[in-house]
């Protein structure tokens, strides 16, 4: 079956994100303090602590959990809560607000069953940090699916971060950019396949390879 033409007037311009970290002066020694700060910090703080592992530990598989889960497990040694926080399914959330609410809900439910709070050893408090994302253009532009696959193999991890994670949660566009563009080409099946990926369960390189594999599969189908 012939697919839609693979050339469209609207090219895909790959962007990239570069992050700078701000310190907030907020720190928590126990779960009550963590919760208190979590309620009032900016969305950029929540984004930082749920996403910086993606960039800083892009080579690890499986990914380490978010910072909250890591601190609760490794510093407070509250393993059950740590597991619950690590299990929060980030891909389900369309806004940082709803993600924050879920994290708060999980901690509150745990605290309701606990009387005594463990305190972090001195020097291992949770320091709240904030992400400043700079969005920059890259030299990579794709006009066709074949060019798109080629660019995907060459772009940096900052581009994957921007088009998969930033646009969904920080810019609240609902989905990733790649599947949106494929849809605009009339490539609905490919778009659905990319949109179905859970990018949080891949390393950055694994994620790149999976998108490339899906696009190549589609290109082979079109050649038949």
């Amino acid at each position: 079956m012939a697919g839609p033409p693979d050339t469209q007037p609207q090219p895909f311009s790959f962007m990239s994100t570069l992050d700078l970290t701000l310190l907030t002066s907020r720190r928590a020694r126990d779960l009550a303090e963590l919760l208190e700060h979590l309620r009032i910090v900016s969305g950029s703080v929540v984004y930082y602590h749920t996403h910086h592992f993606l960039v800083q530990h892009q080579y690890l598989s499986p990914e380490p959990p978010n910072d909250f889960a890591y601190w609760v497990t490794n510093v407070l040694q509250e393993d059950r809560l740590g597991e619950q926080l690590a299990a929060i399914d980030l891909i389900q959330f369309r806004t940082i607000r709803s993600l924050r609410e879920r994290i708060i809900e999980v901690i509150e439910a745990y605290l309701n069953e606990r009387q005594q709070l463990r305190v972090a050893p001195e020097g291992e408090e949770f320091h709240f940090r904030e992400s400043v994302s700079f969005v920059v253009p890259t030299m990579h532009v794709a006009r066709t699916l074949a060019e798109f696959a080629d660019c995907m193999e060459r772009i940096g991890f900052g581009s994957l971060t921007f088009h998969f994670f930033n646009v969904r949660l920080r810019l609240e566009r609902g989905g990733d950019d790649f599947s949106e563009w494929c849809r605009s080409l009339g490539e609905h099946e490919l778009a659905d396949a990319i949109a179905r990926l859970d990018p949080y369960t891949y390393t950055m390189d694994g994620l790149r390879k999976e998108v490339v594999r899906l696009v190549h599969r589609r290109l082979r189908e079109k050649q038949r």
Partner: peptide, 24 residues
């Protein structure tokens, strides 16, 4: 150095293009 010019922003676009390129 670039942040100093955008201290109140948390998503800073350095592309000359329109702020929302979502149509692509």
């Amino acid at each position: 150095f670039l942040f100093l010019e955008h201290r109140d922003e948390r998503v800073i676009r350095l592309d000359a293009m329109a702020p929302d390129r979502a149509s692509l």
